[in-house]
Design a binder for these strands. Structure first.
Length: 993
DNA sequence: GCGATCAGCT
DNA sequence: CACAGCTGATCGC
């Protein structure tokens, strides 16, 4: 390693020819190894393949940054920004593909930890410019983990191009004084660590976080020494990273820090070791211990403490009390200033937002300082594509900060170079394609392409994107508003969603009067980027205004859409609190009389409905299976309800009457039943917020009461309710108003349109299916079940025929026709873990209940909580559920488990009423409603016939077509297995009537 | 048989 | 999709 830097004649200006050096290094290896292409220093290397991610390749060079997985014979010059596995991935002891340039600490780690031959590792000193293949290369500090650097590249030749690759970095103001970075102001591009490129990411400076930890530990030490007891302090860290906290703690608390031998090894390599160093492997000399990253709890998607493990460690090391610190990257708890603390018994875990990546504001500051011609996001973009929607959207965050005037020239150069240069350059593909449009296109002003881009953007907003976004947003957001959000976000769904929530949050803050300074400044940023590429950039970037007038006018014409919808939306939100809450929140308090926990209202509701329509089973408070299994479960549930009631009381006691019972319940739900956590949440929210939320909840409950009454009325005058649903489109979410038992009506009485729970043209809600399933599950007779399915299909046929096929699949527990051989590819464990997370029930509890119920669906249904979500989840529609299942089956590749879990979670969280039960059963491929093709298809066939007949003549004679149906449906059932599309034919063409 | 890559877990 | 990383299984040469 560092073979070159130590050579004596390198003092002035080191110059490296990578081919030459690489060859000689190869030759010096113990077991020489020939490069397949390179035979001499002047051998031309093959062209850079297109598969190399442009986010890792310096344009016009063969330098690859943090891309060892993409290494090949086309390059022998690789750069490693820092020693984290997602960056060094691909490096191994057998590495022979080229030289590795990195900082000295990283170099030591690469050779000692990864056993890469040191001959191939070139250590660069910080702030020393070396020449590599003619390019100027400088490494400067990245303020990430130890040894992390940013690379500065300047190309050879008179018109030098300059590129900055930040690796992973956290911006500090001091970077603006770095003489080397200063030379890269107005660089051609900055490859930016965009990990937190979203306004929702704000976190305090590292100093604040360190102060917090230091003070907390000091406090603990003082207290414990006064009491004569020793308290264990645990700090979670990575293999490399977050060392600054440890050093500061050691320095300011005057203690050494215990690490295990592995960590010690790393620290020694990094130069933190040594005999009088702060780190020790002797656990007995200090109460401050370093532990692995995930010991204190899982960190994603939100922090879940692992007190069990923590306690084990505490006991093992002979302590009575322990305080843990998890320096996480972001604030899990929305935006409050304090740092979250989780407490249980003698255990405490502090979440410290200590980030080694730049916050959103810091990213903007950095870009503003560098003022590059382009920003190339390196994190959060798909496969490193520069023109991916993510990348484009991310670049928009910096629209006012980059050197726009320079871009025009850049396009032209890119255009010329593209045709000649074999190594593909990093130019914006979208822009290039515009240039290709006409012969003289290259001469068009850049503004044309910019506005055209916006136009294209509008066109490019697909139904898919709209749907995706609407999944994220509360259901009261109109399609129009969704469209506006998408346009103003540049077509980025995620950004649109985050913009939306930002605005919502701002609105609430305004309403709450309590506006802290921080939030104000945050809000300023929001509005800045909210107007994306338009006016606001003119203020920040004077160069922008030099452009022709048409530019701004044209853009301004497009952009008001981004702002206008704000006001109506906010008003609507206010309205939603009072009008759009069809469902009752789960109320732990009211569960005394019913075994059905948390859902007494719904259960009662359902019982009432059943009683009103059919005379059967009034005692079905617990599900069928539970009955089969004996009464024990019933008792158990009442116990749970009791415990929860106690928790509520306890919580109320602790806060000394400072909150309403309803709010206590909602807090407990949030805290997953843990009183201490609930207290934590309570005390950490601002006073104003609490009362606001409390009121809000009270309001909702009143409203729910009303809604309940409404539905009762609906029940009473059930069939007289002949008003078309279309008339109340604006309350499209109030599904609970309609009668859940309508499907059980006899076929002749069922009115497919009026008795449905949704309006024509809307996607059919999954609830429709779930209700049918619930009915079918209880009903034994085949006639009745067929009737129920038939009714269900009739509504589907009448209101949203597109949902019929998905419904058939869901009914039959399939996701595709048999011959497609699709598997859901999820197992019980995934479902259980998703349940665990969304319900707040522990795995063991779920297993225990599973033993009692014998069915995961019932377990889920029983555990289901009506969580108070900030935004009520969008109701599940049949097509959503089905398409999600398809997605689940299609997901593969790295990280697939995580993606699957996200999808499953999303489904589970959106469940209403008894949807949960059947959804979970569907997920575990065990629907248990005894409905197979034999039942479903005839039912569908009946339904189709009714649909056709009803169109002309509502009074149908069943017998007239009965026999016809019979024969045909049998045929269909058989044919289905061969040609599933027949279903579609069946629905859309009048095939057989 | 080997290393590279992936799924699963933490 | 996610702040990082380990491990055992599986893939593919």
């Amino acid at each position: 390693m560092a073979s070159l830097l130590s050579s004596p004649d390198a003092s002035k200006s080191l110059s490296i020819n990578t081919s030459e050096l690489f060859l000689s290094s190869l030759a010096s290896l113990p077991s020489p190894h020939a490069h397949p292409i390179l035979t001499s220093a002047s051998t031309p290397l093959p062209p850079v393949p297109a598969a190399v991610p442009p986010t890792a390749l310096i344009p016009g060079s063969r330098f690859l940054i943090d891309a060892f997985r993409h290494a090949g014979d086309f390059s022998v010059a690789y750069f490693l920004s820092h020693f984290h596995s997602d960056h060094y991935g691909g490096l191994a002891p057998s590495w022979r593909r080229g030289l590795i340039f990195c900082s000295a600490p990283t170099a030591r780690l690469v050779s000692s930890v990864l056993s890469v031959p040191p001959q191939l590792v070139v250590a660069l000193d910080l702030g020393v410019r070396v020449t590599v293949d003619g390019w100027g290369v400088t490494a400067v500090d990245a303020n990430h983990c130890p040894g992390a650097v940013q690379f500065l590249f300047s190309s050879p030749g008179p018109n030098t191009e300059r590129y900055v690759h930040t690796g992973d970095f956290r911006y500090t103001e001091s970077m603006t004084h770095d003489p080397y970075l200063l030379e890269f102001v107005r660089a051609d591009a900055v490859f930016l660590d965009t990990t937190y490129c979203n306004p929702k990411f704000t976190f305090p400076s590292q100093e604040e976080a360190v102060d917090y930890v230091v003070n907390a530990i000091k406090h603990v030490k003082d207290e414990s020494s006064a009491a004569g007891k020793r308290v264990l302090c645990l700090i979670a860290t990575y293999v490399v990273g977050k060392e600054r906290i440890l050093l500061e703690v050691a320095r300011r608390c005057g203690c050494s820090i215990h690490v295990d031998s592995r960590k010690m090894e790393i620290l020694t390599v990094l130069g933190f070791g040594g005999e009088n160093g702060v780190f020790t492997e002797d656990a007995s000399v200090t109460d401050v211990h370093v532990i692995g990253w995930n010991v204190l709890g899982e960190t994603w998607p939100y922090f879940r403490p692992n007190f069990v493990k923590m306690k084990e460690i505490m006991v093992e090391r002979g302590y009575m009390k322990a305080v843990g610190f998890v320096p996480t990257g972001w604030m899990y708890e929305t935006k409050k200033e304090g740092f979250a603390v989780r407490v249980k018994d003698s255990l405490e875990i502090h979440l410290v937002p200590y980030s080694e990546h730049s916050s959103y504001d810091e990213l903007r500051d950095y870009v503003k300082f560098l003022h590059p011609k382009r920003v190339i996001p390196t994190v959060g973009v798909d496969a490193g594509k520069l023109d991916s929607k993510e990348a484009i959207a991310m670049q928009k965050h910096f629209s006012g900060l980059v050197d726009e005037t320079a871009n025009k020239q850049e396009f032209l150069m890119a255009f010329h170079r593209r045709s000649t240069d074999a190594t593909h350059s990093c130019k914006d593909v979208a822009k290039c394609s515009i240039l290709h449009d006409g012969e003289d296109a290259a001469l068009l002003p850049a503004i044309t392409s910019a506005s055209e881009q916006l136009d294209t953007l509008r066109e490019n907003i697909t139904e898919e994107m709209k749907k995706e976004l609407s999944d994220f947003l509360p259901s009261w957001v109109s399609e129009e508003q969704i469209m506006d959000l998408l346009i103003s976000s540049g077509g980025d769904v995620v950004k649109a969603a985050s913009d939306f929530f930002e605005r919502e949050r701002d609105f609430f803050e305004e309403a709450n009067i309590s506006c802290s300074e921080t939030l104000k400044s945050e809000k300023k940023h929001t509005s800045d980027h909210g107007s994306s590429a338009d006016g606001s950039s003119q203020q920040e970037c004077p160069l922008f205004s030099q452009k022709p007038v048409e530019h701004s006018t044209k853009l301004v014409n497009l952009t008001p859409t981004g702002k206008k919808p704000n006001t109506p939306k906010k008003e609507k939100k206010r309205g939603s609190g009072t009008t759009n809450k069809p469902k009752k929140k789960g109320r732990l308090t009211s569960s005394t009389e019913s075994g059905g926990r948390k859902q007494s209202t719904i259960t009662n509701y359902f019982i009432r409905a059943t009683a009103a329509t059919s005379k059967s089973g009034t005692a079905d408070k617990v599900t069928v299976k539970a009955h089969q299994n004996n009464v024990e479960s019933d008792d158990q549930l009442t116990d749970i309800a009791k415990t929860q009631d106690q928790s509520v009381d306890q919580l109320l006691q602790i806060v000394d009457g400072g909150m309403s019972r309803e709010y206590a319940v909602s807090l407990l739900e949030k805290a997953k039943g843990d009183v201490t956590v609930a207290v934590d949440i309570f005390y950490s929210s601002s006073e104003n917020n609490v009362t606001a939320i409390d009121k809000n909840i009270a309001l909702q409950n009143t409203q729910n009461e009303t809604t309940d009454k409404c539905s009762n009325t609906d029940l009473a005058c059930d069939s007289s309710q002949a008003t078309p649903k279309v008339s109340n489109l604006h309350v499209q979410t109030s599904l609970a108003e309609s009668d859940s038992a309508n499907v059980s009506l006899p076929i002749e009485k069922y009115l497919p349109i009026e008795h449905a729970c949704w309006a024509a043209g809307q996607p059919a809600p999954y609830l429709h299916l779930a209700r049918t399933f619930n009915l079918v599950e209880k009903e034994k007779g085949k006639i009745k079940t067929t009737a129920a399915f038939c009714n269900m299909f009739r509504s589907l046929l009448a209101l949203s025929p597109d949902d019929v096929l998905p419904a058939v699949y869901l009914c039959t527990n399939k996701i595709s026709p048999d011959h497609e051989n699709m598997e859901l590819n999820i197992g019980g464990s995934l479902v259980v873990s998703a349940l665990e997370e969304s319900l707040g029930t522990s795995r063991s509890k779920i297993h225990e209940m599973y033993k009692t119920y014998g069915d995961l669906g019932n377990v889920a249904q029983e555990c289901r909580q009506n969580q108070t979500l900030l935004a009520p989840p969008r109701p599940l529609s049949i097509r959503d559920v089905y398409s999600t299942l398809r997605k689940l089956s299609a997901i593969s590749g790295s990280g697939s488990a995580g993606r699957r879990k996200i999808l499953v979670l999303h489904l589970i969280r959106s469940c209403r009423e008894m949807e949960m039960k059947f959804l979970v059963r569907t997920l575990v491929r065990n629907l248990r409603i005894g409905a197979m093709m034999k039942t479903i298809l005839p039912a569908l066939a009946h339904a189709v016939v009714f649909d056709r007949k009803c169109a002309g003549d509502p009074v149908v004679s069943l017998e007239g077509i009965q026999s016809q149906l019979q024969s045909l449906s049998t045929g269909v059932a058989e044919a289905y297995n061969v040609i599933p599309n027949l279903i579609r034919l069946l629905v859309h063409e009048t095939l057989w009537i």
